[in-house]
């Protein structure tokens, strides 16, 4: 049993008179299980993408050329870097450097905001060209293109919702760190928020090549 585990067991025993107790291992385990369900949620979409890519390979090929690789690449860099700053903020908190941790959390949030702003410009540019889900310009195009953009908007849309949820989560963690509720000895919730954020990043790593690069 590792030291960490020993401390855990002690913590459980000390608090066993009350039914609300702190168990960091359980909390991490619960978070991993939840992330597993998130992957399966996106898994359904990836499965659909796979089926339709086979069915409409030509149209997927041509539609992908219309996406803006430069903006996509910048967003990928943003998310990857934000994962790094997130991990650094946890490391900083574990070493008791509260100020540095706060700085890293804020930069993570900055990257998240940057990602959403670029996403906004990407989507509005598509709308300006009449590529609106259910819009007449789009539905009159070949079926494969309708499906491509259907997949594009639903997958990146669901991902964007996850970016927002993750950012809100991190915002709360920022508050807790500033208030000292999360500190050197109690950082599990920040680590959980970090895990969630890495998942958001991970899904984008798959979305980016599937939509922007494969053509």
């Amino acid at each position: 049993m590792s030291d960490n585990n020993m401390i855990q067991e002690q913590a459980i025993q000390e608090h066993s008179h009350s039914h609300v107790h702190r168990d960091d291992i359980a909390s991490k385990m619960g978070m991993w299980l939840f992330l597993f369900t998130e992957i399966l949620l996106f898994g359904g979409l990836f499965l659909l993408y796979l089926a339709y890519r086979f069915q409409y390979s030509q149209e997927f090929f041509t539609s992908a050329k219309n996406l803006n690789i430069v903006l996509g690449t910048i967003n990928t860099i943003f998310l990857l870097t934000s994962s790094l700053t997130m991990a650094l903020s946890i490391a900083a908190l574990q070493r008791g450097n509260k100020k540095l941790s706060i700085a890293f959390i804020i930069s993570t949030l900055g990257f998240a905001l940057g990602f959403m702003i670029i996403k906004y410009f990407e989507w509005t540019a598509k709308f300006a060209h009449g590529i609106i889900p259910g819009g007449e310009t789009l539905t009159s195009r070949p079926h494969g293109e309708v499906i491509f953009y259907g997949m594009y908007f639903s997958m990146t849309g669901l991902h964007a919702i996850h970016v927002i949820v993750g950012a809100v989560l991190i915002l709360f963690m920022l508050r807790f760190v500033i208030k000292g509720k999360l500190n050197k000895d109690n950082y599990q919730r920040l680590e959980n928020a970090g895990l969630y954020w890495h998942l958001v990043d991970l899904i984008w790593i798959f979305l980016f090549p599937l939509f922007y690069l494969l053509h």
């Binding site: 659909l48 889900p133 259910g134 079926h143 309708v146 499906i147 953009y149 259907g150 639903s154």
Partner: peptide, 14 residues
Amino acid sequence: LFSIGIFDPALGGD
């Protein structure tokens, strides 16, 4: 809500 076509055979969905 948005007729994205993923499940709608009229738009190419399966």
